[in-house]
Simulated scan of single mutants.
Amino acid sequence: MMRNVYVAIYVLLLIAVVVGVDIIFLKSLFWLRLAANIGIVVVFAAVYFALLKNL
């Protein structure tokens, strides 16, 4: 049960970071925004698989 809570919080944090970066820094730069979003998702996935997968 707690694992589901951690994953939900982690996903909400991922969404908040992606939306925050899009709105604050990369509002009108489509390709740079897309690349940054992909990079953020890759970093979050790597951290998940490295640290949080065994919860």
Rank of each mutant, 00 (worst) to 15 (best):
I15N: 03
V41P: 00
L52A: 14
M2C: 14
L34A: 13
V21M: 05
W31H: 13
V19W: 10
F30A: 02
Y48R: 05
N37I: 14
Y6E: 01
V47R: 00
V42G: 11
Y6F: 08
L34H: 01
V17W: 06
L34Q: 05
V42H: 05
L14P: 00
L52Y: 13
I40C: 09
K53R: 12
M2A: 15
D22Q: 15
K27M: 07
Y48W: 15
I15P: 00
L29E: 14
V43M: 03
L34D: 00
V21E: 04
A35C: 04
L13I: 07
F44W: 11
I24K: 12
N54D: 12
I23Y: 07
Y48N: 05
R33M: 02
I23P: 00
A45D: 08
V47D: 11
L32N: 05
G20V: 02
A45C: 12
F49P: 01
L55V: 05
I40M: 10
N4M: 06
V5W: 07
N54Y: 12
G20T: 03
I15D: 04
F44C: 12
I23C: 03
I24F: 13
V21C: 03
I15M: 08
L52W: 06
N37D: 15
L12F: 12
F44N: 11
A16M: 10
W31R: 14
K53W: 09
D22L: 13
I24A: 14
L26K: 01
V17L: 13
V42R: 10
V17Y: 04
I9W: 14
F44E: 05
V5D: 11
L13R: 06
N4Q: 09
D22F: 13
V41W: 01
V5F: 12
V7F: 08
V47N: 05
V5Q: 10
I9F: 02
W31N: 07
V43W: 02
V43R: 00
W31S: 12
Y48V: 05
L26W: 05
A50T: 14
Y10L: 12
I40T: 09
V43G: 00
K53C: 04
K27R: 14
F44K: 11
N37G: 15
V7D: 06
M2R: 15
A46N: 04
V7T: 09
V42P: 00
R33A: 02
A8F: 04
Y10N: 01
F44S: 03
W31Q: 08
W31C: 08
V21Y: 03
R3F: 12
Y6D: 02
I15H: 01
A50M: 12
F25S: 11
L26Y: 09
L32C: 03
A35T: 06
R33D: 00
G39H: 14
I38R: 01
F44A: 13
V43N: 00
Y10I: 10
N37F: 15
L12P: 00
R33T: 00
A8L: 08
G20W: 03
I38D: 00
L51I: 09
I40R: 06
A8M: 05
A35E: 03
V42E: 09
V5G: 07
V41L: 14
R33W: 00
A46Y: 07
M1V: 03
V7I: 10
M1E: 11
K27T: 10
L52E: 10
V11L: 08
V17E: 09
F25K: 11
L32F: 10
M1Q: 06
L13V: 06
